[in-house]
Simulated scan of single mutants.
Amino acid sequence: MTSSDLRDTLRQMLAVLEEERQALAGLDLDAIVGATNNKNHLCGTLDSVDPATLDEECLGLVDAARRLNEVNRQVRNIVAANVSRRLDALTGGPQLYRASAGYTRAATLA
């Protein structure tokens, strides 16, 4: 894969991660599943890349993608904690999954 192709793939990954963020914000299940499929495809493309060949621009794109992916992961966890809290409130039952205090607090603010 050329540097140009790699940069294009990383830019596509950033676009997909942004689409996923918007899908999570709107709780759009079809868009979330589509973003997941697109991420998996792009990860398959990136599997063949030798990390030693990354230039500064590519490293910056990788870092941006890593940060955006982490934000999306935290949003997914907040949504899951909020759902668990609401289900427990309905049933009065104990939680099977306990989110950390930070996620629980963020979920109550949402």
Rank of each mutant, 00 (worst) to 15 (best):
M1R: 10
S3P: 13
S3W: 05
S3D: 15
S3M: 05
S4F: 04
S4C: 01
D5G: 06
L6E: 11
L6D: 14
R7S: 15
D8V: 05
D8H: 13
D8A: 13
D8L: 10
T9Y: 07
T9W: 03
T9A: 15
L10G: 09
L10V: 05
L10H: 05
Q12H: 13
Q12V: 02
Q12L: 11
M13T: 13
M13W: 12
A15C: 06
A15D: 10
V16N: 05
V16I: 08
L17M: 10
L17N: 15
L17W: 04
E19G: 12
R21I: 04
A25F: 06
A25V: 11
L29S: 07
A31V: 00
A31C: 01
I32L: 13
I32E: 07
I32R: 06
G34D: 14
G34V: 09
G34R: 14
T36F: 06
T36P: 00
N37M: 10
K39C: 07
K39G: 06
K39L: 08
K39I: 13
L42M: 06
L42Y: 11
L42C: 03
C43Y: 12
C43E: 12
C43H: 14
C43R: 08
C43P: 02
T45S: 12
L46R: 02
D47F: 09
D47S: 14
D47L: 09
S48H: 11
V49N: 01
V49L: 00
P51G: 07
P51H: 02
A52M: 08
A52Y: 02
T53C: 11
L54S: 04
D55K: 01
E56F: 11
E57H: 08
E57W: 04
L59F: 05
L59N: 15
L59P: 02
G60T: 04
G60Y: 05
G60W: 02
L61W: 02
L61A: 03
V62E: 00
V62G: 01
A65P: 02
R66I: 03
R67F: 00
R67L: 02
N69T: 11
V71I: 15
N72F: 00
R73H: 12
R73Q: 10
V75A: 14
R76D: 12
N77E: 15
I78D: 13
V79P: 08
A80P: 03
A80N: 12
A81Q: 06
N82Q: 13
V83E: 03
S84I: 06
R85C: 06
R85L: 07
R85A: 14
R85I: 09
L87G: 03
L87W: 10
A89R: 03
A89P: 06
A89F: 09
A89T: 10
L90W: 05
T91Y: 00
T91S: 12
G93M: 04
P94I: 01
P94V: 03
L96G: 08
L96S: 10
L96N: 04
Y97E: 05
Y97T: 03
Y97P: 03
R98K: 07
R98V: 14
A101L: 14
A101F: 10
G102A: 14
Y103P: 01
T104K: 08
T104V: 08
T104L: 12
T104Y: 09
T104G: 12
R105A: 15
R105C: 05
A107I: 11
A107H: 05
T108I: 06
T108W: 03
L109D: 04
A110S: 14
A110Q: 12
A110N: 11
